Simulated scan of single mutants.
Amino acid sequence: MSGRPWKIPESVLVVIHTPTLDVLLIRRADAEDFWQSVTGSKDDIDEPLALTAAREVAEETGIDCGEGSALASQLRDWRLQNIYEIYPRWRARYAPGVTHNTEHLFGLCVPERLTPRLDPREHTAWRWLPYREAADACFSPSNAEAILLLPQFAQ
């Protein structure tokens, strides 16, 4: 894999939302029709999931919800997980024989529709949508299902 370490098949999905249940979606750079929530794999097998979630939110949107930040208390582990088959187009990023990923669900409530700062190598556009519309816009069924759970996890 040309010097890059294999991706760890354990990841987070973070549904970023407002108190009124508007959801931030970002469009993947490597798949123009794929809108999604923040996602990302652990950097290290021992990395705590909350740290993975906060890191991925910062990397993909520029929103700081890490320990000590103003939004740290708004990052919530929903204590749910999905196990799904890795799309064949991305399987080469994982060690040979790895076909499934375990995804842990988180929510992050932000006070209003913030303007994210995207890394154009990863994401090319963003939009805020009411949660039901956001679920309909997601390419990933597990992401859509997570967004539809938002009313029961939002406080």
Rank of each mutant, 00 (worst) to 15 (best):
I45N: 12
D46G: 05
P48V: 09
P48Q: 08
L49Q: 09
L49A: 10
L49M: 08
L51P: 07
A53T: 01
A53W: 00
A53P: 00
A53H: 00
R55G: 11
V57K: 02
A58T: 11
E59C: 13
E60G: 04
E60S: 02
E60A: 04
E60P: 12
T61Q: 00
G62Y: 01
G62W: 01
I63T: 01
I63K: 00
I63N: 10
I63F: 00
I63L: 04
D64P: 07
D64W: 15
C65D: 06
C65W: 03
C65G: 06
G66Q: 12
E67N: 14
E67S: 13
S69M: 07
A70T: 05
A70G: 13
A70L: 10
L71K: 02
A72S: 06
S73T: 13
Q74W: 01
L75Q: 01
R76W: 06
R76Y: 04
R76T: 06
R76E: 15
R76M: 14
D77R: 10
D77I: 11
W78P: 00
W78I: 03
R79K: 14
L80H: 10
L80Y: 09
L80R: 14
Q81A: 04
Q81H: 14
Q81N: 09
N82P: 15
N82V: 08
I83T: 14
I83E: 14
Y84R: 06
Y84P: 03
Y84E: 15
E85K: 14
E85N: 15
E85R: 05
E85A: 15
I86S: 07
I86D: 11
Y87R: 09
Y87W: 14
P88V: 08
P88F: 07
P88N: 08
R89E: 13
R89N: 05
R89C: 07
W90T: 13
W90L: 08
R91M: 12
A92I: 08
A92F: 05
R93M: 05
R93S: 13
R93I: 11
R93F: 09
Y94D: 13
Y94S: 06
P96H: 06
V98W: 01
V98T: 14
V98I: 05
H100T: 12
H100N: 07
N101K: 06
T102N: 11
T102P: 00
E103D: 13
E103R: 00
E103W: 11
E103Q: 09
H104N: 02
H104V: 01
H104A: 05
L105F: 14
L105D: 03
L105Q: 12
L105P: 05
F106Q: 06
G107K: 02
L108A: 04
C109G: 10
C109D: 01
C109H: 08
V110Y: 03
V110K: 08
V110Q: 00
P111C: 08
P111N: 01
P111V: 06
R113A: 00
L114C: 02
T115K: 04
T115N: 12
T115V: 11
T115H: 03
P116Y: 02
P116N: 03
R117K: 02
L118K: 12
L118I: 05
L118D: 15
D119R: 05
D119Q: 11
D119P: 13
D119T: 14
D119F: 09
R121L: 12
R121Q: 04
E122F: 03
E122L: 11
E122I: 11
H123G: 02
T124L: 00
T124K: 04
T124S: 04
T124H: 10
T124E: 07
T124C: 12
A125G: 11
A125V: 03
W126Y: 14
W126P: 02
R127T: 02
